[in-house]
């Protein structure tokens, strides 16, 4: 009996996993394990001991391999616009790549922009994860709860925000916490050799800064390109072989990214560099460097989520537990 209980409890403790299907929604996911990994050593965040606080996560989770892109955002924007109480042309709805047709009340996407990382406010990114958590329902409540209760979104007279700080337990999708983001980008269970965990300084499994340049020229990031001169954006996933230890792409370049974690009641953590910053980008890519931003700022984001529990595993667990009970 005890062994059955321990077996079941052990399984539930190892992941944010829910029984039943959790859709993939067409996202390309990377699963992050190594439960209970350590935080960075001071030597891995040289000179910045504060950065040693982040990166430990004690559960399985998954993250989208790239930032949310415009084609994914388009579906959300068209579903949400009927409930949106601001101007449909507001940047937090359109980003750079959507345009609104008032005659039909829908957005369309610029040609060629399908894989452009979207930029939006933290609160709108939160609504996106609500919508995913609610099965992409078009009903108004689906956007206002699930991961984050948007009725908490607001400001105190002293300008501090009242927003819910962490995603609601049980949500299937959310904005990655800063720990999750750091772990997904920098932590490697085999950093110093097989089974010897550690952290890379850069998000492409290296302690050397990523090489800036176009992919066809051997580049590893578009962050060091010059915006305007070298183009205006680049598709997410343009460097498919430049990966974090967990297979995440575009940790450098693309868009700077929101995380869920609040620095305080004024700011949330953001991290990563963005397309076209020019030289100097590499500092943002360092594990020990982060920044903070008001919720009203415009940044990219990726989605974190539970790992769906496979039905076959559930049956095996049930069968095993029965077997153990019978043998006693």
């Amino acid at each position: 009996m005890r062994s059955t209980l321990f077996l079941c409890l052990g399984l539930f403790a190892t992941s944010y996993a829910v029984a039943g299907p959790v859709p993939d929604y067409g996202f390309d996911w990377a699963e992050i394990g190594a439960l209970g990994n350590r935080r960075p050593l001071l030597s891995e965040v040289p000179g910045f001991p504060d950065a040693a606080q982040y990166g430990s996560v004690n559960y399985h989770y998954r993250m989208t391999r790239t930032e949310v892109v415009t084609s994914q955002w388009l579906e959300f924007a068209n579903a949400y616009v009927a409930h949106y109480d601001g101007s449909p042309t507001a940047f937090e709805m359109t980003g750079w790549w959507l345009s609104y047709d008032s005659s039909i009340g829908q957005y369309s996407m610029a040609d060629g922009a399908a894989l452009a990382p979207v930029e939006t406010t933290w609160r709108m990114a939160a609504r996106f994860t609500n919508w995913l958590s609610n099965g992409k329902s078009n009903d108004a409540p689906a956007f206002e709860n699930g991961a984050y209760d948007t009725s908490t979104f607001g400001r105190n007279p002293d300008a501090t925000f009242t927003d819910q700080l962490e995603h609601t337990p049980g949500a299937a999708f959310w904005i990655p916490t800063y720990d999750e983001w750091v772990k997904g980008m920098h932590y490697d269970p085999n950093r110093y050799g097989q089974g010897e965990e550690g952290y890379w300084r850069y998000p492409h499994s290296s302690d050397s800064e990523p090489l800036s340049g176009f992919p066809e020229e051997g580049g590893e990031t578009n962050a060091g390109l010059t915006w305007g001169q070298d183009g205006w954006f680049m598709d997410a996933g343009s460097y498919p072989d430049v990966q974090s230890p967990w297979g995440l792409l575009d940790g450098s370049g693309g868009a700077r990214e929101w995380t869920e974690t609040a620095f305080d009641r004024m700011y949330r953590f953001i991290d990563g560099s963005e397309f076209g910053e020019g030289n100097g980008f590499q500092v943002r890519d360092l594990i020990e460097q982060w920044s903070i931003a008001f919720p009203e700022g415009y940044y990219g984001f990726r989605v974190a989520g539970v790992i769906p529990a496979p039905w076959s595993s559930s049956l095996a667990i049930g069968g095993l537990s029965l077997l153990l009970r019978k043998t006693r």
């Binding site: 750079w96 790549w97 959507l98 922009a113 954006f233």
Partner: peptide, 26 residues
Amino acid sequence: VANDGVLDGRIRAGKLHVPTMSSLDE
């Protein structure tokens, strides 16, 4: 963009321009 107000002053530039692949939100 002045989200809730006026635009006042001066603009001098080459082009009011949209990138090659871009939305109509410029």
